[in-house]
């Protein structure tokens, strides 16, 4: 099956096997930020945006990405640096292996939710597992980032 996919703004046309998942397809195109942490759609490490929505690239077949726009952290470097700096200042990246998927979901959340409460933030991000941090530092980073974004908008 030949698919046409826009990855981080660039269009690719490729022959893919019907059972290739988007995760492996993206890594084969150099999107190494996309990680795999489980086989059961539970960890959130492989989160990418498909037409602006956060999805598990381990569960979406590459054939389903045909005609779609996919964004990975490689395509959001400016945003990653901006939010990532808040995360790094809390020490909240730790081993960093879950960071790309987590950040992809944070960036999706920021677009989808307006002035989220702590509970709403936790709910939106609960599908992103992290074994290092105990999540507290991530929460601090998210809140500081949201404050920063709000102040930036007010300017």
């Amino acid at each position: 099956m030949i698919i046409t996919v826009k990855i981080n703004g660039k269009t690719y046309k490729d022959e893919v096997a019907p059972d290739t998942v988007l995760l492996d397809y993206l890594r084969s195109h150099g999107c190494y930020s996309v990680k795999r942490g489980c086989e059961t759609s539970n960890c959130g490490l492989c989160t990418v945006h498909m037409d602006s929505k956060p999805v598990l690239s381990c569960s979406v077949l590459a054939v389903r990405a045909d005609g779609q726009e996919i964004t990975t952290l490689e395509g959001l470097q400016k945003e990653a640096e901006e939010f990532g700096a808040f995360l790094a200042d809390e020490g909240g990246e730790q081993c960093g292996f879950c960071s790309p998927g987590f950040i992809m979901n944070v960036l999706a959340m920021v677009k989808e939710l307006k002035n989220p409460t702590d509970e709403e933030i936790k709910k939106y991000l609960e599908g992103n597992l992290c074994r290092c941090t105990g999540y507290q530092s991530q929460m601090r980073a998210v809140k500081k980032y949201l404050d920063f974004k709000q102040k930036e908008e007010q300017k």
């Binding site: 759609s41 539970n42 959130g44 989160t47 929505k53 956060p54 999805v55 598990l56 569960s59 979406v60 979901n105 999706a108 959340m109 709910k123 939106y124 991000l125 609960e126 599908g127 992103n128």
Partner: peptide, 12 residues
């Protein structure tokens, strides 16, 4: 539905 894994899972 809200407890089913996470937002990304439920988007799929």
């Amino acid at each position: 539905f809200t407890h089913i894994v996470g937002v990304q899972f439920r988007n799929c």
